[in-house]
Design a binder for these strands. Structure first.
Length: 499
RNA sequence: CGGGAUGUAGCGCAGCCCGGUAGCGCACUAGGCUGGGGGUCUAGGGGUCGCAAGUUCGAAUCUUGUCAUCCCGACCA
């Protein structure tokens, strides 16, 4: 049962007052998700799911354009398969849900209650997948014999379960939705190219569609995916200055091929293990979307992902006026739909215009059009954009062209705003004191030298609660001294406090 | 798993200390006046007070247990 919610007010906690509460309020009030009866698990409501569907649609087409096909693998992984790749297994072991039984029976001591039937114990436990490398590589073994079978480029849309101690709507839930790509290649270079290619797909998606500027980089050993040789990532900055990992692409080397004995015969008839990648993004991106752009009035959605791009609100007195407006709106809607714009006409008479204005601001609909008798007389509509709250008057003639332009402008404006914010918060630090001060006073990415050891990284994490988000791909080499130990360093890395 | 809090109408809460007819706001239903930034009036409907035991003539209220959720921390996409 949700606690600590808002009073009956239709407002949300302000960002400044309590960022974390602002986020929770927003997700609930905008109708993206609900808490559920299951600890750590949420219900994704239709409006939130519609955003996910738009993300899926776009990503899926990008995956297909780069040669991937969709497939589906089982939710359960036999424990013996799960433990095959040791690093991967160890990394996920402490957050796995396990199926041990397959049957319930009536509780002899409590009428109407059920207990686990001790006689229905599984011989081998099943792990509910926290990620699917194990089951997929076990399957790939049967699919790959020759270099002619490669590359194998597969993606799956799925749910996974990670038993997190502490959860947050969209950002970290026990069960979450994602896609995971799993590819097999004949050469190391090809696999690395694939890893980078998919990182670029993610970065392009984040920036072009989510209007979310990201930094592409490589993870330090500490932060690397369990079982990977290298983890590439895109890192974004939220409005509270905390970083959020928005997607990862892993170069897995031959680790999984070796663990599952996946070999192929090359052109010279020599046997070798295949090279692997995996990459994924999750419903966490919805959390990123919310935290990156929204404000105290509600969501701000980028037009390219908004389930509804334009909402039309009629303003009328009496049925006669309403009918005149209806007629005009139907024609305008046809025009807008023909131009590929998703549009909703809210002529629900239960709520008044003011209520609707506030409601659609909460929902982050990019453009609102209001039409009243006054507008009809002048052949115009009132157009309000969500991101700036600016109101304009557009002629009804050629409306769709102007709306298309406006949606593009909004998309760009949201991106630029986020980018300016992010750029302003990538700050260099050269001393430990400066580093600590920046974390508190100007949270964001801190660019600093690091001696390259995991021990140092651990200590910094312990003392400053900041981690290395990534070593940016476009980094310039520069001699310096580690912010913490003073040891030699060849480049700066990005630190931040993160979600 | 440690710390803190909360479960009472669809939602948000009061009532509990000091046991005695279950309340308020919003939402909902019907109708009216309204309508360019969360309107208003009238009349209504809706509850095994998380669950289970106990104390008592009597429990939302006291006791014990239990389940669940939220927040903070450690862990993590």
């Amino acid at each position: 049962m949700p606690q600590r919610g808002l009073h009956m007010s239709k407002e949300i906690t302000s960002m400044q007052e309590d960022y974390s509460q602002w986020y929770n309020d927003l997700v609930i009030k905008a109708g993206l998700a609900d808490y559920s009866a299951v600890r750590g698990c949420m219900v994704i409501k239709p409006y939130g799911y519609a955003i996910w569907e738009n993300m899926q649609k776009q990503l899926d087409s990008m995956f297909k354009e780069t040669g991937h096909q969709n497939a589906y693998f089982p939710l359960f992984v036999p424990k013996s398969l799960f433990e095959a790749e040791e690093t991967n297994a160890e990394g996920f072991a402490k957050e796995c849900a396990i199926v041990t039984h397959y049957r319930l029976k009536a509780d002899p001591d409590h009428k109407g209650k059920l207990i686990v039937d001790p006689e229905a114990k599984l011989e081998e436990e099943l792990v509910v997948r926290p990620t699917s490398e194990a089951i997929i590589w076990n399957t790939y073994k049967g699919w790959i014999q020759s270099y002619r079978d490669l590359p194998l480029l597969i993606n799956q849309w799925a749910n996974v379960v990670r038993w997190e101690m502490r959860t947050r709507l969209f950002l970290r839930t026990t069960e979450f939705l994602w896609q995971e790509g799993h590819t097999a290649h004949a050469t190391e270079k090809e696999a690395i190219d694939e890893t980078v290619q998919m990182l670029n797909v993610y970065a392009d998606f984040a920036e072009t569609y989510m209007a979310l500027p990201v930094i592409k980089g490589v993870k330090s050993a500490n932060e690397r995916f369990a079982g990977a040789v290298d983890t590439y990532c895109i890192e974004a900055l939220m409005q509270d200055g905390k970083a959020l990992q928005a997607g990862t692409s892993h170069f897995l080397g031959q680790n999984f091929a070796k663990a599952f004995d996946v070999k192929f015969t090359d052109k010279e008839n020599k046997l070798d293990f295949v090279w692997a990648t995996s990459w994924g993004v999750s419903t966490r991106l919805i959390g990123a979307l919310v935290m990156a752009h929204s404000d105290d009035q509600g969501l701000v959605l980028p037009p390219k992902l908004a389930p509804i791009q334009v909402v039309i609100v009629p303003i009328f007195k009496g049925e006669e006026q309403k009918q005149l407006i209806d007629e005009k709106v139907i024609a305008l809607m046809q025009q807008l739909k023909a131009a590929g714009i998703s549009v909703k006409y809210d002529d629900n008479d239960n709520n008044r215009p003011g209520w609707k204005f506030a409601e659609y601001e909460m929902k982050g609909i990019p453009v609102r059009i209001a039409i009243g008798a006054r507008d009809l007389a002048n052949n115009v509509v009132e157009v309000a954009r969500r991101d700036t709250k600016e109101k304009m008057s557009f002629s009804m003639d050629g409306l769709s062209e102007r709306i298309i332009t406006l949606l593009d402008e909004i998309q760009l404006a949201i991106f630029n705003k986020a980018k300016n914010f992010r750029d302003d918060r990538v700050t260099p630090a050269d001393t430990w004191d400066e580093f600590l001060k920046l974390l508190d006073e100007k949270p964001g990415f801190i660019s600093a030298h690091w001696d390259g050891t995991g021990e140092t990284e651990d200590k910094i994490k312990e003392l400053a609660k900041a981690t290395i988000r990534c070593i940016p791909l476009n980094n310039e080499l520069e001699n310096g001294k580690c912010i913490f130990t003073g040891n030699a360093s060849k480049q700066r890395v990005l630190f931040a406090r993160a979600y």
